[in-house]
Design a protein around this nucleic acid. Structure first.
Lengths: 351, 351
DNA sequence: GTCAATTACTTTATGGTTTACTTTATTGAT
DNA sequence: ATCAATAAAGTAAACCATAAAGTAATTGAC
């Protein structure tokens, strides 16, 4: 009952021409006369021909496909990145093979192997928070497969990358807070063995030093990028009766963790404890209170990455690598917009 | 400078055996002696061999790949669905080709063609809100490609599907509201030419009729599934000074639209206008006020879909189709949990 | 000791397309 | 009328792996 798939050969034998003629006609090759081309296309349409992409890619040694590796998917930042990547890909007739490492370096390695095996023309990747072994990336480069790192970038030379100016972003936020009057400022810094954690932390330190505000190392807590880490870090300081007045959190989920914890112990944001975070999710507007943040322009990140990878695919011999850095801006809503005296006595609420 | 990709042939010639021997050895075929197998695997490892998946798939006439078509990606519901699908796929060594129709039926059609051309073993799809032409789905079936519809399902016979019990879900919510004391209940119903809109609306009607509550057709507004539609629908009724006391919204983004609009005109949720929605996003807990909803268990939806598609792939001759329907449950937070008298006079606030 | 079965391979064919090269017919310049 | 150039096809080979069929050498039953 199954309709067998129509092949070039089916069209060819129906018209008594060679398969090559059909192949060329369908690709508008000048070898074939307009009359024949038209006829072949008509028959192809009638029979419902769809090319076998496996065969085409095998033969052509390219796939018109870009492989993506990201650590998470049900996450506003990566969701947004991907949505834009898909749009650009669709415009340029590229296919996307998306893989998700779930923050697992081993799984990431497997996915990269799979993408290479699938002969993707290029790879865009945001590495896991625990990727320490970069061998696989060297291997990809040796194989001549263009690779672009986006947002989360390994500490390697001669790679293509697109990122937000994390250091400047953190600096801007802390500068803003200090000018507001804040002095007791903490930083939930996430993993700092990866660029985004490291650079944001450095921006925090830069600003504090630049304005001569003392850094209390108890208030810099490293850990993860998720809700749980935000919750735990907050609770740890709360139990030590040692909360700062303001937190800069390394991601938006971490801030959410703080929201949960604060609500649980009955502290009000922003009055009792204030907060600003990296990353701008739509819903932050609707949180209570609306959460201020350092914007990461996901659309730009995606577009630049796609530009870079497509350029690298077209000009495989270009050796020069590019490191694109996108400026951030503060988006102020209802947190981190004023400093009130209540916080200066913030021991009181602990009783 | 490029390392050429290693093929079976490279390994074979190095060891003076045939490519087929290598192929079989790497697949642990009993034809090959343990000694040889071990040797071949060792050399394959050394040379960094990775099979060419294109070639393998072409030859094997199957791809170990499942194609996905969804209408949106940066959306909690679909993000969550996909995340779980990827996890199940990874466990079972399937690859996923994810495509995004962006609610565009034409783009959806193209993606399905691409997936067929890529020879995916099966397709899981959630159709766009505007997909009216089902021919393409018949074609997929005629080609013998297993297809499973998830959540958004066309009105066709003999298809495999996995969905939430939308009608029951809406019924439960409205039943709950009526028992609370609500009588002036509206429904922002979205597109009702697709099952999710149609069934939710029907559930609403069922409950209203069952409890003898009058349905005011002005308060049933059809439209889209996004924020803007929620915003517009609310504003329309507000401007007509004709708001109900409670809205059931067809999706979570629609509820968000209502939140925006209500804030803009200075009405308080849930006191001035109450709301409950379909779909449970993590962040609903953090909205102000926390939004109650009818849960759609995305993990179950994904798992059942993957089960169904994998079963269909393994038993291609099984003709019987399955329509799995998953029960919903109410998740009550700070909306739709009480009815207060203020609302009964809800003309007052318009002045 | 003979024949059948098993072991461990090899050879050949197949999948559907593209690329590189070849052929035949036509056109145009001289 | 002749020869070179071009147009419009065709043929052969390649891409890389797998499946099916074939072969030579060894084992084992009686």
């Amino acid at each position: 009952m199954k309709d067998k798939a129509i092949t070039l050969n089916d069209i060819a034998s129906k018209l008594n021409v060679s398969t090559v003629t059909v192949s060329k006609a369908l690709r508008n090759h000048p070898d074939i006369s307009p009359t024949t081309t038209k006829l072949i296309k008509k028959v192809a349409e009638e029979l419902g021909y769809t090319p076998n992409i496996m065969a085409r890619n095998l033969s052509a040694r390219k796939s018109n496909t870009i492989g993506i590796v990201i650590p998470k998917i049900a996450h506003f930042f990566f969701g947004s990145i991907i949505e834009h990547i898909y749009d650009v890909a669709f415009e340029h007739n590229y296919e996307i093979i998306l893989t998700v490492s779930q923050e697992n370096p081993e799984r990431e390695r497997k996915h990269i192997h799979t993408l290479m095996a699938m002969k993707v023309d290029g790879i865009i990747i945001s590495i896991t928070q625990e990727t320490l072994n970069y061998e696989i990336f060297d291997m990809v480069k040796r194989r001549g497969i263009p690779i672009v790192f986006i947002d989360r970038i390994p500490n390697m030379k001669n790679i293509n990358s697109v990122a937000v100016n994390d250091r400047q972003g953190a600096y801007k936020a802390i500068e803003h807070a200090i000018k507001l009057g804040y002095r007791k400022i903490g930083h939930l810094a996430g993993y700092t063995n990866i660029n985004i954690g490291r650079d944001r932390k450095q921006g925090f330190i830069d600003a504090m030093n630049n304005y001569g505000v003392e850094i209390n190392s108890d208030w810099i807590i490293e850990g993860g990028f998720g809700e749980k880490y935000g919750y735990d870090a907050f609770m740890k300081l709360y139990n030590q009766k040692n909360l700062p007045d303001l937190f800069l959190t390394v991601t938006y989920p971490v801030a959410l963790g703080v929201y949960i914890a604060a609500a649980e112990v009955g502290l009000k944001i922003p009055d009792d404890i204030d907060i600003i975070c990296f990353g701008n999710a739509e819903v932050q507007k609707f949180l209570f209170p609306p959460l201020s943040c350092i914007d990461q322009p996901t659309k730009l990140l995606s577009e630049y990455s796609m530009d870079l990878i497509m350029k690298s695919i077209k000009e495989p011999d270009e050796i020069e690598t590019k490191n694109i850095v996108i400026d951030t801006q503060l988006i102020l809503r209802s947190t981190c917009i004023s400093f009130n005296k209540k916080k200066e006595l913030n021991e009181s609420y602990i009783l």
